[in-house]
Amino acid sequence: MKKILFAFSSTAFFMIASIVTVKAQDSTMKAEVMPAAVQQDIVDIAGGSPEHTMLVKAITDANLTKVFKMNGPYTVFAPTNAAFEKIPESDRTKLMKNKGELAKTIKYHVVGGNWNSTTLMAAIKQGNGVVELPTLAGSKLKATVEEGKVKLTDENGNALYVTNADIMASNGVIHIVDAVAMPMQQVTAAKK
């Protein structure tokens, strides 16, 4: 009986020691990994992504780096290089050269506040399937859910989908999108 009790006690001790060790390692990993990731702001994270070189260039060319480095919080719907390449080359070249339109287009991807996927989905549900998100460009993006994915619709009716959500930054959250949202073009009336 003493051998059984000793074997049981030893086993229990090693199980508890293993659990404590795993918990300590888990806590250590979180302490080491999480703060480093969260200390990076939106520009730092985008700058470290080979899929977002066009976005970073657009932010820089439009003189918006300081805006994206501010405290926030901001939610950025970050188009990939492939998303920018969907814009016809001649239109993309014009956009990149026109600093005012470029700034407006980039700001159209930024929403004030921390709209992580949980918050966004809850707002869509509360809005009976749709929520309008006011952007820094002064326009709105319409968010809905289609086939389980968050779909954003710009003022022109173009759709973009969130392909990767909840990349946390020190000043907000980033959601990767597969297209570039385009604000409505200002049309000036022709003089008669």
Rank of each mutant, 00 (worst) to 15 (best):
M182P: 01
S49M: 04
K23W: 13
A82G: 09
K23S: 15
A181E: 00
A24E: 13
K23F: 12
V145Y: 02
S18I: 12
A24V: 13
S117P: 06
G129C: 01
Q186Y: 08
L152R: 07
G72C: 06
I42G: 09
K104M: 12
T21M: 11
L55E: 00
V76Y: 02
I174N: 05
T65S: 14
P134M: 03
W115F: 09
M96Y: 07
L64N: 05
G127M: 04
Y161Q: 02
G138F: 04
N71T: 15
M34A: 15
L102H: 04
M29S: 13
T119P: 01
D154Q: 08
N128D: 14
L64I: 05
A12T: 13
H109M: 01
A36D: 10
F14E: 02
N116R: 00
L120W: 02
V187F: 07
F8P: 06
T153F: 02
I124G: 04
I87D: 06
N128V: 09
L141K: 00
I59P: 02
E146T: 04
V111D: 00
V56F: 00
A46N: 08
G47T: 05
I45R: 10
A82P: 04
A12V: 14
N156F: 06
A78H: 09
P79C: 00
N171M: 04
P183G: 03
A190D: 07
T75E: 03
K99V: 10
T21D: 07
S27D: 14
S170W: 01
K23I: 15
I87L: 14
D178M: 06
I4D: 14
I19T: 15
M168W: 06
M96E: 09
S117G: 10
V20K: 03
I167Q: 05
D91L: 14
T60E: 12
P79F: 00
T105D: 06
T144N: 08
A58Y: 01
M1S: 11
G47E: 01
K149H: 06
E85N: 15
A189V: 13
H175Y: 02
D91K: 15
I45N: 08
S27V: 12
A31P: 00
E147A: 15
K151T: 10
E85F: 11
T135E: 07
E85I: 09
N156R: 12
Q126I: 08
G100Q: 14
V131Y: 06
I4W: 10
A137F: 05
I16H: 04
L95Y: 07
L5N: 10
E132M: 10
K151L: 11
K149T: 04
D26W: 04
G138E: 05
N164T: 15
V111I: 08
T188I: 14
L120D: 05
K3G: 12
G72V: 03
T144G: 03
D154K: 03
A123C: 04
T163M: 07
A159N: 13
T60D: 09
S49F: 03
A137G: 07
L141Y: 01
N114F: 13
A58V: 00
N114Y: 11
R92T: 06
V38I: 10
